[in-house]
Write a protein that binds this DNA or RNA. Structure first.
Lengths: 344, 344
DNA sequence: AAGCGAAGTGCAAACGTTTGCATCCTGACA
DNA sequence: TGTCAGGATGCAAACGTTTGCACTTCGCTT
């Protein structure tokens, strides 16, 4: 009844052959005879042999594990990305170790240590909101552990990355509002050291300029993109002498917050005020009215990041030029921004 | 420039002491002198030494990893549970390996193999919707790998588990509707081999009986609890000669689907029809009207499961009687079920 | 008949830690 | 001075795999 798990040596002893032969038989080494392979595999099955991946990892200097650091895992976006990562990784025979930084640099630093400790072969990161410097990533690089960033990256830090074309997203969202006839369009944005919020804002401004409209300071509200921030921002906007006739929010959450305020004030969406969010969260179909939003192809992003990482692992060229993959966003038009649709 | 990571042996060589001493110094073994400890730690820091957890895992027969198998990771519930697991595990010095079964038994079986391969010390599982038998779990048990189920368990399979008191949840949801004056209450339920849906239904029936109301077959709709199922179910209900005046849905998603249909038909919630969901998904605050729902304390569930697992690991009594932890749900009352609130 | 190549297998070292036991040293006590 | 205790360290084996190299056998070729 001793529950010791069968090892390669056990198989070898039982079959009166050497451990090397067993190992090779199991791994499909060509030099082993048909017959032996059969015997080994049969016994392995019988004893329920499972390779010890710690041992093989140790010996081969590989762990078959990839690490992921995300700010958090709740909400649609990151959980979908992780899903994509998982799918791509497991197809390639890798395990995935997932860590959450909780939007905190210190946590992020600790996560990286943890992952390196666990001997992961590569790491994918989406930086936390409080990350402003890159020392902890340099440590990873020094160890020659391939590193791929996704979605959120640090401005001016040249790295391998898979990102969304946030500028295009911001542009298309805003342009859609303009085409619907809205002219005084406000924008909710987040911390500007994060590429995503900065680029969404730039896209917004670009669209305005294209329509020869001024970019007004008072219509751009900086916040943390949570629901509360959206509510507060909306109230601030409504208090203006000339309130906006539409809002492009850099996040669905703050858009939802804005929606609550509008409803409470008895303002109609999209008639009185148009609204567009960002991320195409699950709930954007459930609000009343349904929320127009930008889809980020989260799962694809996860798969792309993993594919890029696997490529790097494959090539093993320590310091090749960093590669960028840019995904194009999609605009999902729903009721919250459809003014003409109602008229027509 | 060889990027070989410093090992214990490297430290030992450099300091002209033995590897054992270095190991002991780093692990706080009492027999090592103050002075040596200092020297070792200093050099370790200088060289950026990171212990190789594969090696130490191999030697000590421990991996410091826990495995988790969930049906999926999107949506509020499981991602929050995972968050709780992660938090509790990392506080205890464990890594977490997360696998998704995609609601498929075969995947689930493969996930378990994978985790055992990775030498996890214990496994937490919430079974997939298509899991109806337990052979693959027996294999884990045979290896004496502690196993804890959470939320979803197989009826009649006696195991360590952390579950919600779903019966109480169903009861309280239904009772709340009754107290609001609704009398013809329908119910959306899911696959009955899953404890959660079965118990929610039982709680629903219990509340009806308490009010001396009949349990009507035609008012109980079985489905897959997705949004579409909710829409379809609602249409089916509205087509009845005597449609219900309220619905208790076993999931927020199908509740949302029902809401869409109701809105399209011009039926007012909660005046014409009351609605209660289950899970307290993030979006339940965002629907119009906001959705009354049952909160499952997801994060707590994750923490509890982990704590239980760690206990089992600690005790190492192979076949102690399985333990159950039952969490109490909370009812979050919102507009979708507040008929009297409007009158008052 | 010697030599050769190929196929199949085994030996032993290595990966980086941990740990039981042995060893050495120093100082104290009888 | 001899003995002993205790503190500090080292030795070597072990965890389960993988892998370069050597070895045996056997059937062929020259």
């Amino acid at each position: 009844m001793a529950k010791k798990r069968a090892s390669i040596t056990d198989l070898a002893r039982e079959l009166h052959i050497s451990a090397s032969t067993v190992s090779r038989a199991l791994n499909g080494h060509p030099a082993i005879s048909e017959a032996t392979v059969k015997r080994v595999k049969a016994l392995a099955k019988e004893l329920g042999y499972q390779p010890n991946s710690l041992a093989s990892g140790l010996r081969r200097g590989r762990s078959n594990m990839l690490g992921v650091v995300v700010p958090h895992i709740d909400g649609h976006f990151f959980s979908q990305v992780v899903k994509g990562i998982e799918a791509a990784a497991s197809k390639a025979g890798y395990q995935v170790l997932i860590c959450q930084s909780n939007e905190d640099v210190e946590h992020e630093r600790a996560n990286l240590e943890t992952l390196m400790n666990a001997q992961v072969e590569g790491i994918m990161v989406s930086i936390s909101r409080t990350t402003r410097e890159t020392r902890h990533f340099e440590k990873v690089r020094k160890r020659d552990i391939p590193l791929v960033f996704f979605d959120r990256i640090l401005e001016g830090y040249d790295v391998n990355a898979v990102v969304l074309d946030d500028r295009a997203g911001g542009y298309r969202a805003t342009r859609h509002l303009l085409e619907q006839g809205y002219r005084r369009i406000a924008h909710f944005s987040g911390p500007q050291h994060l590429n995503i919020y900065k680029h969404r804002r730039q896209g917004y401004e670009e669209a305005l300029r294209e329509y020869n409209l001024p970019v007004r300071e008072e219509l751009i509200i900086m916040g943390d993109m949570k629901m509360e921030d959206g509510s507060a921002g909306m109230q601030q906007l409504l208090a203006l002498p000339e309130p906006p006739d539409a809002v492009f929010s850099g996040s669905d959450f703050s858009a939802a917050g804005a929606l609550e305020v509008l409803e409470a004030r008895g303002l109609r969406v999209p008639q009185d005020i148009g609204l567009v969010g960002f991320s195409n969260e699950l709930f954007s179909r459930l609000t009343a009215p349904q929320l127009t939003s930008i889809d980020q192809h989260c799962e694809l992003m996860g798969r792309s990041a993993t594919r890029l990482l696997l490529q790097l692992l494959d090539e093993r060229e320590p310091h090749a030029a960093p590669r960028h993959v840019v995904l194009q966003p999609d605009l999902f038009v729903r009721a919250s921004s459809l003014r003409t649709g109602l008229a027509g």
